[in-house]
């Protein structure tokens, strides 16, 4: 029996995306290293200064070592999250290159999904290398998973959360049918979601009601939640709460994405392929 055309397309497109991303070896290496290392490093310096200034052993529910481990874990997991710059759909809409989806037997989302699959494969590989390297080079500092199932739970949550980000960014890109330029919306979304996910500041440093409220959002369960499970600050069984929150988010985002794309395509008047 022949494979479903969309599945075949997904596999083929994922292969192309993988070839493309690995063709830029040096740039890929520099970007990954810079992205993975610099921000957490700067944030760690910041928190070291905070602890030193206060002379405190525990702030925000963690000691300095615990805070450092949390920040590294968050940066480690953040590398798995689908990035807004991974999609160029808005540009295609603006330039008039989406006509092909009106006439050819393929779905645009399948290509975006292929990019998500490629991204997830590549970044999981990078994260694994980082994890091994970090554990060997920085044994006292690197956030070692408390148990194999904690690592698995964190990975599953991060990849499921990353899928939510794909849906969100696809949706925002589709708004280009109306707004023509949406990069500001994408950047805005990145700022807000990274803040809500506890990347810029651990949730334990935020006011209690706000921190509790953020635990109902998929950004938290994509990054900070998995980090806490990985470090044993949350029980592994909380993975079900996380998956439930992410599941609800997907249930809302998926139909929304379909409706916006369909309506946008209906008013599309470009001529390029």
């Amino acid at each position: 029996m022949a494979v479903h055309p969309q599945v075949a397309l997904l596999l083929q497109a994922t292969l192309y995306e993988l070839k493309k991303v690995t063709a830029w070896r040096m740039g890929f290496f520099v970007r990954e290293i810079a992205r993975a290392l610099l921000r957490p490093l700067l944030t760690i310096f910041m928190f070291q200064a905070v602890f030193a200034a206060q002379g405190a052993t525990e702030l925000g529910g963690r000691d300095l070592d615990g805070t450092v481990r949390y920040l590294i874990a968050v940066a480690w997991i953040e590398g798995l999250i689908f990035h807004d710059r991974m999609l160029d759909l808005a540009e295609q809409i603006f330039q008039g290159y989406v006509t092909k989806y009106l006439v050819m037997p393929m779905r645009c989302f399948t290509l975006a999904l292929a990019r998500y699959v490629q991204f997830s494969i590549t970044q999981t590989g990078v994260a694994a290398l980082l994890g091994i390297g970090g554990a060997l080079l920085l044994p006292g500092v690197w956030p070692l998973p408390v148990a194999p199932e904690a690592l698995l739970a964190a990975l599953v949550l991060a990849l499921a959360g990353s899928y939510c980000f794909l849906l969100l960014y696809f949706l925002l890109n589709s708004i280009a049918f109306w707004l023509e330029v949406v990069w500001t919306l994408l950047v805005m979304t990145r700022f807000v979601t990274m803040f809500l996910a506890g990347v810029m500041l651990p949730l334990s440093w935020m006011p209690e009601p706000l921190a509790r409220a953020l635990e109902y959002g998929f950004p938290y369960w994509s990054i900070a939640g998995p980090a806490e499970i990985l470090l044993g600050e949350r029980p592994v069984s909380d993975v079900w709460t996380g998956l439930a929150v992410i599941g609800v988010s997907i249930t809302v985002l998926e139909p929304l994405r379909r409706v916006v794309w369909k309506r946008g395509l209906a008013r599309y008047g470009g001529s390029g392929m």
């Binding site: 910041m46 702030l59 990274m194 810029m200 006011p207």
Partner: peptide
């Protein structure tokens, strides 16, 4: 939004410390 995120980050930090 960029301003707000930065302001909130530091305001929350200073809820726990007096100076950095």
């Amino acid at each position: 939004v960029f301003y707000l995120v930065h302001i909130l980050t530091f305001e929350f930090l200073y809820n726990s410390v007096d100076s950095i």
